Simulated assay, not measured.
Amino acid sequence: MNPHAPAPISIISFARSFKSHWELIILLTKREIIGRYKGSMMGVVWSVINPVLLLLLYTFVFSKVFKSRWGGGVEDGNLNFALALFTGMIVHGLLSEGLVRAPTLITSNIPYVKKVVFPLEILPMVALGTSIFHAAISLVVLAGAIFLFKGAIPWTAIFLPMVLLPLLILTLGMMLVIASLGVFIRDISHPIGFFVTVLLFGSPVFYPVSALPEYIRPWLMLNPLTFIIEQARAILLVGQTVDLVGWLIYFSISVTVAWIGYAWFQKTRRGFANVL
């Protein structure tokens, strides 16, 4: 690798980087997951306990204290409210965990920055892989709850990977930009944390889109989580198929954002070593 050669910025080179280093990405992801729970008595079991406890807490607060009802195609009842709420929490967690970690991905891996041959662009992929791991465990819990209380999981659940794919691509693109900015602007982690909180309450996590006035709904669709959350609930809880037109639009935007993020990262990575 020639350190003086221009860094590739095409979407094809981005895909090739992932293909060439996927074994390293998996290895680093496993190491990070194990390291996160190393030393704790229950280990990875906490990744199951935490979402379940949050599910119970939110369900009690919103269905018992505030007497909230769901609607939006989902049957009424505390159980259905909990399932709809948990689905939204999982989708939000996929995006939020990656964005919160992104500002320190480069600054916390300085030894990798000093190595010219290390592919720094895979660090956001590793962090995203950790988010996917935790989301997958939560989805297993959700699937078990749906099967236990409803007797069957809708066949449309097979479309879930397809529904989540654009969100993962979009998240990766955003993480690449934020990780790069985190090297030069150390304070960026603070607004990112606030932004994630705004997304939580500005997304249909605690309510369906149909609960809002009609003139607000189109604006809510500008939120990157809205479409994915609504589609995830549709295929998991209602048994509806994917909105293919909306999915194609979202996928196109996600790929564009990912390419822009990769190009920005590649253009700025030469300055990482000087700053660090």
Rank of each mutant, 00 (worst) to 15 (best):
Gly43Glu: 08
Gly93Ala: 10
Lys267Gln: 04
Val44Glu: 10
Val275Arg: 05
Asn274Gly: 05
Glu214Gln: 09
Lys114Ile: 00
Phe265Ser: 04
Val163Ser: 06
Gly88Thr: 03
Ile185Ser: 01
Phe184Gln: 01
Phe184Leu: 01
Arg16Tyr: 12
Leu236Ala: 12
Lys150His: 15
Ile110Ser: 07
Leu236Pro: 12
Pro213Ala: 10
Pro213Cys: 04
Glu23Tyr: 07
Leu83Ala: 13
Pro124Glu: 08
Thr241His: 01
Gly39His: 09
Ala234Asp: 12
Leu200Phe: 02
Thr197Gly: 02
Trp22Gln: 14
Val65Thr: 09
Tyr58Ile: 06
Val196Glu: 01
Ile192Glu: 00
Ile49Thr: 11
Val52Pro: 11
Gln240Phe: 01
Gly239Pro: 03
Pro6Ser: 10
Ile188Asn: 02
Ile49Gln: 13
Tyr112Met: 14
Leu139Gln: 09
Phe60Gly: 15
Val52Met: 14
Leu123Pro: 04
Ala145Phe: 13
Gly239Tyr: 03
Pro154Gly: 09
Phe194Gly: 05
Phe66Lys: 08
Pro191Asp: 01
Asn50Gly: 03
Ala145Glu: 07
Val209Asp: 06
Ile33Phe: 07
Phe66Gln: 09
Leu83Phe: 12
Ser13Met: 08
Leu237Asp: 14
Thr197Tyr: 00
Met125Tyr: 14
Thr156Pro: 04
Leu276His: 04
Phe147Gln: 15
Trp46Ile: 09
Gly182Gln: 01
Pro191Arg: 05
Ala15Asp: 04
Ser210Ala: 14
Ile106Tyr: 09
Pro3Cys: 01
Gly239Gln: 05
Leu83Glu: 15
Gly246Asp: 04
Gly151Lys: 12
Phe18Glu: 05
Pro154Phe: 03
Leu95Ala: 09
Ile25Tyr: 11
Phe60Ser: 14
Leu172Val: 00
Leu55Met: 15
Leu105Ile: 08
Gly73Glu: 05
Pro213Glu: 07
Ser47Phe: 05
Leu27His: 11
Leu170Glu: 10
Ile260Gly: 07
Met125Ser: 14
Val255Lys: 08
Pro166Asp: 12
Thr197Arg: 08
Gly151Val: 05
Ser138Asp: 13
Arg269Lys: 15
Ser68Trp: 11
Val245Pro: 01
Ser189Glu: 02
